[in-house]
């Protein structure tokens, strides 16, 4: 790789790693795994950086790698390790508590269903874009979305903070 390629890659990481990390956090439900996932996606992308950057769409490409890596990763990892819970590193405020509930609820979804939720409702992608990214049909995305909504509605309405809010 040339010095120019490295420089272009550095700029990309400086500009976009945080947004990748945010998506990765929602895809994995855990900060540590999210960092590993982003690192892996960047490493995979850097191998072809000349080609990716010359096409002018590196953001879309790296996001695609992130999502596909997360689903394939999970398949491999689920046999050996799973995040059961996270240890809070600071006193949890109301926002933190709600975030933890959300991440925990997301973690209960199968990986592809979780990816559908993140792509549709966090990255605001259309059903067609989501289907293309995940390599499935639009019908599958619709089904997965509907099931995910039902599941999350159930889980999040049962969460303690939600119940407290209802009582008030």
């Amino acid at each position: 790789m040339s010095e120019e390629t490295d420089e272009s890659f550095r700029w990309f990481v400086v500009a976009h790693r945080r947004s990748l990390l945010r998506s990765a956090l929602l895809l994995t439900g855990d900060r540590g795994h999210a960092e590993d996932l982003v690192q892996t996606a960047l490493l995979k992308s850097y191998r072809h950086w000349d080609r990716i950057s010359s096409r002018g769409e590196p953001v879309a490409y790296v996001h695609r790698v992130l999502v596909t890596t997360s689903t394939s990763w999970w398949r491999r990892r689920s046999a050996t390790e799973q995040v059961m819970d996270t240890i809070p590193d600071r006193a949890a405020g109301p926002d933190q508590q709600r975030d933890d509930e959300l991440l925990q609820a997301l973690r209960t979804l199968p990986p592809r269903m979780r990816a559908v939720v993140v792509l549709r409702f966090y990255e605001d992608r259309s059903e067609a874009q989501t289907a293309e990214l995940l390599g499935c049909s639009v019908g599958t995305v619709k089904t997965q979305t509907s099931r995910a909504m039902a599941r999350l509605r159930e889980l999040l309405s049962a969460a303690p903070t939600e119940r407290e809010a209802v009582r008030q």
Partner: peptide, 24 residues
């Protein structure tokens, strides 16, 4: 989703990003 993602990465910084790139 947006709130949780935003709050999670508040400690990221410029040096960290360049160090990650160099590591890759």
């Amino acid at each position: 989703l947006h709130g949780a993602a935003r709050r999670a990465d508040a400690e990221s910084d410029y040096y960290e990003e360049t160090a990650v790139a160099d590591n890759v």
